Computed example of a mutant assay.
Amino acid sequence: MELTIQSLALSSTTTPIPDYNKGPDPHQALQIHDYLRVSFLRQPAEVKAASQKAIQLFSAHYPETLSKKYFVNVPLVMQWMFGAMQVFMAKETVAKMQWMSYGEELHKYVGEDVAKEYGGQGPGLEEVGVTPRYEQQGAGETVVDAAAAKEVAI
């Protein structure tokens, strides 16, 4: 999350925010949540807790920096559950989400430059993926070491 926000360079941008619905906003990012090989039935408690915390943080601190969120390789049964949950979510939030069972369909939504695993012509995830490195600060604080992470290019 922090690396994505850093890549938007919001503190140094000179590009104005475009009028609402009049073109893409260069100050927004998209997220891809890939559930390949993730078990929804046997998910460890710490994974669930981390996912919920990440959603809370993004919602509380970065609500206008997300243009779209793609959930790929989601089992069909989970798509039905997400569909039922939409009733309780804000329309604006639901409009930013797209669920799909097959990751190779993603290129239809974000373009052909996306990674090969997502049906695009771009480099594979092994080549462009990011593994954030974390440093412990004082008093249990953890920060992302941006210099140690590779840049993401989907």
Rank of each mutant, 00 (worst) to 15 (best):
E92N: 06
V38S: 10
Y109N: 04
P123V: 00
K108C: 01
H27Y: 05
G111R: 02
G122Q: 05
W80A: 12
F58E: 04
K69P: 00
V128W: 04
G119L: 05
E104Y: 13
E104P: 09
V128G: 06
M89G: 03
E105W: 00
Q43K: 13
S51F: 15
S39M: 09
Y102N: 10
S59L: 03
R42L: 09
A54G: 11
V110D: 04
Q52G: 11
K69H: 07
L125D: 03
V47E: 07
Q79M: 15
P26Y: 13
L41T: 14
G120Q: 08
I55K: 11
V128M: 03
A29E: 01
D25K: 11
V77I: 14
Q121M: 07
W80K: 12
G103P: 08
A29V: 02
A95I: 09
T93A: 11
H61T: 14
M81C: 10
H27K: 10
L106A: 05
L57G: 09
P123R: 09
P26S: 07
L76D: 03
L41W: 15
Y109I: 01
S51W: 12
D113P: 14
T93F: 14
A50D: 02
M78C: 11
M97K: 03
L66C: 08
H33G: 04
A115F: 00
V114S: 01
L30W: 13
F58N: 12
P123S: 10
H107M: 06
P44S: 11
S101Y: 11
E104A: 07
M78L: 11
K53M: 14
A45C: 08
V74F: 02
Q86S: 12
Q31T: 08
G120L: 03
L36I: 06
R42E: 06
Y62A: 14
P63R: 08
A115K: 00
F40Y: 09
E105F: 00
D113V: 11
L76Q: 05
Y109S: 02
Q31S: 04
K48L: 13
G111Y: 01
I32G: 05
L125N: 07
P75M: 08
K96W: 05
V74S: 02
E112Y: 01
M100G: 02
K91C: 03
T93N: 07
G124I: 06
H61D: 15
L41E: 12
S59T: 13
Y35P: 01
W80N: 07
G124D: 15
F88R: 13
L41Y: 14
E92P: 07
K69C: 11
W99V: 01
Q98L: 10
R37D: 13
Q31R: 09
V38R: 12
H33C: 05
K68E: 02
H33R: 04
Q56S: 13
S101C: 09
S101P: 08
Y70R: 00
L36R: 14
W99G: 00
G124K: 12
V110L: 09
L36Y: 11
W80G: 10
W99Q: 02
K68T: 07
T65Y: 13
P26Q: 08
A54E: 09
R42F: 06
Q43A: 14
M85F: 15
M85P: 07
I32F: 06
A115W: 00
G124H: 10
Q121I: 05
E126Q: 06
D25Q: 07
V87I: 07
Y109E: 08
L30V: 12
V74K: 04
